[in-house]
Design a binder for these strands. Structure first.
Lengths: 233, 233
DNA sequence: TTATCTAAATTGGTTAACCAGATTGGTTTT
DNA sequence: AAAACCAATCTGGTTAACCAATTTAGATAA
């Protein structure tokens, strides 16, 4: 409980620091390549710990807005003040994604990865998808829980898509999907049995290198989920 | 130069730690809820600094595989060994996305965000998109560089889509897109002038709440880019 | 024997000291 | 006057000490 509060406080502090950095860049008219004040200077100017400053800078570095060079300084990336302001505003605004956003995004990604996997899969990819499918089927037939095997099947397809961005994004949204699924108890035995057929259809389409069919079968697979989630709301 | 090497070494160390944690979970048959050895124990067992251990744990925490509780310990998340192994393998394998992956993913996301924005945009969203469009047009007409304003127009649409996951992903791929664009000098003056019309078309479709048209116009906008990027390869 | 309480040890998180390398300003040399 | 050099200073990065909360184990009391 207290953890949550602390973490939120910490998160708030980071947001405040980021907005102060933005204000500083605007006020001092810092242009691409200009150097920010040192971490120590900022920490006493903003009256926060140096660690907090470092975290904020690293976050802005992640989004490509700043660049830290050891033993030298932190510099404004090659991006103008306009885009800088717009992007920082976005970063500050971003709330934690709701379940609906996660599902919507997952479906979008999976329809594409299925399509791409059908186009690009190697024999090795295909074998891995097949293995995941078999593991899944076996668990379901034995009446065991197969959430993990289901997940691995989908991740195998993402891998076969040959697009590392989409693969990464699948991994990022996976935890949120799983926890929410378990919270809502979406998967029951009937759906699992139906899942075997749907998974098999998807696999077959990817094997026969039919992108359109793969997308179609993936869409069918998500149809129930999609409706279920939106009715839940 | 040396920075790169060091950073790669650091990255390698983290990967090694993550795979060692995976081995440990497998070897000790740690199940969901089980406690990992303390950070200090791990650091001397793996012969790395405690900071490295913390980074690796935080990364696995980000992907929902571990959970750290202050003054208590780090625990295996509610995810079985099968999925744990599969996901860690994926995490270790993920390479930096190439330009093609980035563009492919951006197009996928933007076609959807345009569509969703047309469905869900509020009056406020619409105004912000309009402002971004005007700022872009003005720069282009004055013959100035308008890369930033172009970017902000697209981010405004992502915001209006009402899907925070997609919005986040757009922000994540943006830096890679920008740096590569500048590297390849994609945008020239002619494209910028053409861009005004295309942007205006997209805006009009979103204003008139026509999802299908919005997607179509966005597709047209990306057509040149898409071909250009793939020809570049 | 069981339950309860207390103090010591353990935990993840945080802070302050330290490090190596880059920068800078002044000095010396040519 | 200009170039070369050098030491003091400043930088982000790293490490070790510290902290408060928690857990644990043993002593005590019922």
């Amino acid at each position: 409980m207290k953890l949550e509060i602390l973490k939120n406080e910490n998160h708030d502090i980071q947001k405040k620091i980021i907005s102060k950095i933005r204000d500083l860049i605007n006020h001092k008219n810092l242009e691409p390549g200009d150097k920010l004040p040192s971490e120590r200077t900022l920490s006493e100017k903003f009256e926060v710990s140096r660690g907090n400053i470092r975290e904020a800078i690293q976050k802005l570095e992640f989004y490509g807005l700043l660049e830290s060079i050891p033993q030298s300084g932190t510099f404004v990336a090659n991006i103008g003040v306009t885009a800088m302001n717009g992007m920082i505003e976005d970063i500050l605004r971003l709330e934690e994604p709701d379940f609906k956003s996660l599902v919507e995004t997952r479906i979008l990604l999976e329809l594409k990865t299925a399509q791409l996997a059908a186009m690009r899969r190697t024999e090795e990819d295909l074998q891995e998808i097949k293995d995941a499918l078999d593991a899944y089927s076996e668990k379901v037939i034995n009446g065991e829980d197969a959430v993990q095997e289901d997940l691995l099947f989908h991740l195998a397809i993402a891998k076969a898509s040959g697009n590392s961005s989409m693969n990464t994004f699948m991994l990022i949204i996976t935890p949120g999907i799983i926890t929410n699924f378990e919270k809502y108890h979406v998967c029951d035995k009937n759906q699992a049995f139906l899942g075997i057929q749907e998974h098999t259809d998807i696999y077959a389409a990817i094997r026969s290198q039919d992108p359109k069919l793969a997308k179609e079968k993936m869409k069918a697979h998500f149809k129930i989920l999609y409706q279920y989630c939106y009715n839940q709301k």
